[in-house]
Design a protein around this nucleic acid. Structure first.
Length: 553
RNA sequence: UGCCCGAUAGUAUAAAGGUAGUACAACGGUUUUUGGUACCGUUUGUCUAGGUUCGAAUCCUGGUCGGGCAACCA
């Protein structure tokens, strides 16, 4: 019975390394730049890195890659930490690339001393021209052969603060003829007179990504440095610095980043949606950010399950949104409390049920739970709200719900028969009249009647109200990035629909922020973070599957 | 006109030279006091042309297609 799950390519590498005794302890890291909010794509990387050390032992560091002071903020550091914790992961060490600025500076000095780096006084444009193009080789800079002594003095001058931004840079001396553009004497330090969110004004020169990332990995003795595919060509440089510096040989491995259909994933584009007011913030429930998904009602478990299912490979991919929805439904089905809410109400009067009489019915909270999630009390009376879409004047084929003469069960209550309906001045149905069958009460039904349909309801006298926000995909096309023109041309104008006054059963007055609810036959809902006792606001996490809507299409 | 990645059902992801499997989606059915859940079933696949081999998704060669590479971003 080998029901073993197959390994992804990174797990294979790790198992081989571990079996070969190459490393004693597996150490990975998650290295976000604190310049924005984390999204579901980061969740994939988080689950990968933390998941690996969970599986094989060892640990994972959280390292903020903060080498560019102008884009980074403490606000982002905080939100990123919150999101990782919420996902259910705990890092071993909280670290910052800026912690290594002194060491990195020393590394640069060593390179200069060894004749492997030089200060270039060319302008950005001059340097770019000499760099060549992917199909044209580069040419040496006129400053390339300065002596180590001169370079050392110049680099110290850069650090001293007396030089202006852009006046010169430090470059590694590698090979202007390399077919890999990154090896054509890459810039490793630039002057930036900017205040850093952690080091303040201590520095006015900052290392570039390539001169910081591998070394930081090395300092932390990261054994497997996992990143996304766009860094493949950086690996040669990554290895070069480690070799020339003679430091711990961390190894870089690349996997394909996550793309989700009907959304965008780049921080730049997400930021644009926020700035342009398309969404109400980074945590708008329509956003693919961790905070957006959290506000929407997604659970950490469902996101982890999703990341598990999408797999790790090197092929570009677009995951269908339906898989994410499947994962959250699967979890919510197990944990959500079932309740009744009527979103688009129409009145139903039970003509043979005494007016003024109230009855307390008992409903189980979750048929999927072992203990059925306990029970709750649901008030019943002769006047109810039901869903407008549950009544058809002229029933369609295979219609199991209310229609003239039709019989349905009111969930947790009685079987009723539609005896008639009333039409208002606007031509719309305003009221449905039914008779009920007293001996058909839920749990003690002796009527012997079988009905095909069961509908939800709320007693109008006891109903409370709430605002309900229904969300849909943010874009109308699968891959907004791939379409012609601006990605915002493909925004879904109906991505959010607000129902200001829906009727909910009184039990929901006790709803709490962490609660997950299934509005029976409608979907899964959770309280919005702006909800208050006097003004309840529910977000729809995801709808229930709707076989009827499908057959009816 | 270069270099580097990659290519398996609609979408993902397995099969380490030996039966192409799994999940989601789609479709059909059973059960059901949620047209939900659960359960059962069906459809659909190795980019292409050669080569090696008893045997190729897998190894080799050419081609095609997709992605990346010319920020003082990460």
């Amino acid at each position: 019975m080998s029901e073993e799950k197959s390994l992804n390519f990174i797990e294979e590498i790790i198992e081989n390394d571990l079996n070969a005794g190459k490393y004693k302890t597996l150490i990975t890291r998650f290295p976000p730049e604190p310049n924005g909010y984390l999204h579901i794509g980061h969740a994939k990387a988080i689950c990968l890195n933390f998941g690996l050390t969970k599986k094989y032992g060892g640990y994972t560091n959280l390292r903020f890659d903060d080498t560019n002071p102008v884009t980074e903020k403490t606000e982002y550091v905080d939100s990123q930490q919150e999101d990782i914790k919420w996902l259910g992961f705990q890092w071993e060490n909280e670290l910052y690339t800026s912690d290594y600025f002194d060491t990195l500076y020393d590394y640069a000095v060593k390179l200069i001393t060894d004749g492997l780096a030089y200060v270039d006084n060319g302008t950005a444009e001059e340097i770019a021209v000499l760099k060549g193009t992917p199909t044209e080789l580069g040419k040496d800079s006129p400053y390339r052969n300065r002596s180590p002594k001169e370079n050392l003095e110049l680099f110290a001058l850069m650090k001293s603060g007396s030089l202006e931004d852009g006046s010169c840079i430090l470059r590694a001396k590698i090979d202007m003829l390399s077919t890999n553009m990154l090896m054509r004497d890459p810039i490793i330090y630039r002057i930036k007179h900017a205040s850093h969110h952690r080091t303040g004004d201590k520095w006015c020169i900052y290392p570039m990504y390539d001169f910081a990332h591998g070394q930081s990995d090395s300092i932390e003795t990261i054994t497997h440095s996992i990143c996304t595919l766009e860094y493949v060509s950086h690996r040669e440089l990554y290895d070069w610095f480690i070799e020339k510096l003679g430091i711990f040989p961390s190894k870089q491995y690349e996997f394909a980043r996550l793309n989700l259909s009907y959304t965008v994933m780049s921080k730049r584009k997400l930021l644009q949606l926020v700035n342009d007011g398309v969404v109400i913030g980074w945590d708008d429930p329509r956003m693919p950010t961790i905070s957006g998904l959290r506000r929407r009602g997604y659970t950490p478990e469902s996101i982890r399950e999703f990341c598990e299912r999408i797999g790790i490979a090197k092929r570009e991919n677009i995951i269908e949104l339906s898989l994410l929805e499947f994962c959250v439904r699967e979890h919510l089905n197990k944990i959500a409390t079932r309740v009744m809410a009527v979103l688009d109400p129409i009145k139903l009067v039970i003509t043979n049920y005494p007016e003024g009489v109230e009855e307390i019915l008992i409903g189980e909270n979750n048929p999927e739970a072992e203990d059925k999630g306990g029970t709750r009390e649901i008030p019943f009376s002769n006047e109810l709200w039901i869903e407008r879409e549950d009544f058809m004047e002229e029933p369609a084929k295979k219609w199991f719900r209310l229609a003239p003469g039709a019989v349905v069960r009111l969930k947790h209550a009685y079987i009723v028969k539609c005896e008639g309906f009333e039409i208002g001045s606007n031509g719309h149905v305003t009221q449905i009249n039914c008779s009920y069958i007293p001996e058909s009460k839920s749990g003690e039904d002796t009527s012997g009647i079988n009905v095909k349909g069961t509908i939800h309801w709320v007693s109008s006298k006891h109903a409370k109200t709430a605002e309900i926000r229904t969300y849909d995909r943010l874009f109308t096309v699968e891959s907004p990035d791939a379409e012609e023109g601006d990605f915002k041309d493909y925004l879904n104008p109906n991505s959010m629909e607000v129902i200001t006054k829906a009727y909910i059963e009184p039990y929901l007055l006790n709803a709490d922020q962490d609660g997950r609810y299934q509005f029976i036959r409608k979907g899964y809902y959770t309280l919005d973070k702006t909800s208050s006792a006097g003004n309840l606001i529910f977000n729809r996490t995801v709808s229930l599957k709707d076989a009827w809507a499908k057959t009816n299409k």
